[in-house]
Design a protein around this nucleic acid. Sequence first.
DNA 1: TTCCAGGTTTCCT
DNA 2: AGGAAACATGGA
Length: 315
Amino acid sequence: MTDFSRACFWQNDGTDILLPVPEEFDFKQNYDHLSTATDEALYTLRGGSIYKAIAVGARDTVVEIGPHRGEGGESLRIRFVEESAAADPELQEGVARYVHDWFDLGTDLAPFYEMARQDLLLKQAVDSFYGLRNMGIPDLYEAICWGILGQQINLAFAYTLKRRFVEAYGRSIERGGERYWLFPTAERIAELTPEDLSAAGMTTVKKCEYLVDTAKLIANGELTKEMLLATGDVRQAEKMLVKIRGIGPWTAHYVLMRCLRLPDAFPIDDVGLHHSIRHVLGLDAKPDKPRLLELSAGWTKWEAYATFYLWRILY
DNA sequence: TTCCAGGTTTCCT
DNA sequence: AGGAAACATGGA
């Protein structure tokens, strides 16, 4: 048993994993957040549970994730679909780690809520969505692709593009009569040309160049999560990312927020954020940069969560 | 048809 | 360093 498994989860009866959750956690809030995606290719919501394919090493598996209430309070129940993983602790731990990262269970939200309750913009959001976590994108290539795909287009179309991308180049497995998709690996995309992607219906050739270029960087080990974390702070990590063609300040902060989990990552230029702020304050126009800086001045070290909660208001 | 959408690059001073 | 222009496409 590893340190992680000892510290973070225990098995129920050999078929389920029960993952402890922090005090500030509400499964339904996170489930409802996931349900706002218009055409999500990478998970399925059914009967109050989340179904998702997860790759652990070379092995693909499908799990059902749902709430569990027991004597020890609330936890997450992870159940393997049509598979017994009881004898495979490596698979169990890999899946548990993924879910732990996905739901950002390692962050203590108490200080954020304390700050947000006093904040003009956030107080309403944290009241409405108490227990919502920053549901992240643990895979670096997936996070970068989602950033690139989502640039300057509406979200509905971005989901369409993602589905095309996933179904053209991702692996899939069938469980219980359903097909579950995994996001394409950087290694897979690195062997393609921008023209391949463009022909497959992926947006413009320019964006396809970015998708292939970043795939090569990651497949060659020239860009990793560890490198970004090792820079030590959000400004240095941003610097490293924006050197890459196709990644500007918005995408850099988006990736640092959703994948690297830097608490002070802050996509301040985000149109959705501006729209949300305009809505909360009842403004006629979107706030300008000086006003944004003023309004977010009290969010220090919680900019990522503040942004995530404000985005949530819009849906 | 027009306008906008969870921007970035390139080319200018 | 800071600003305008080009880019390019589905949805409302």
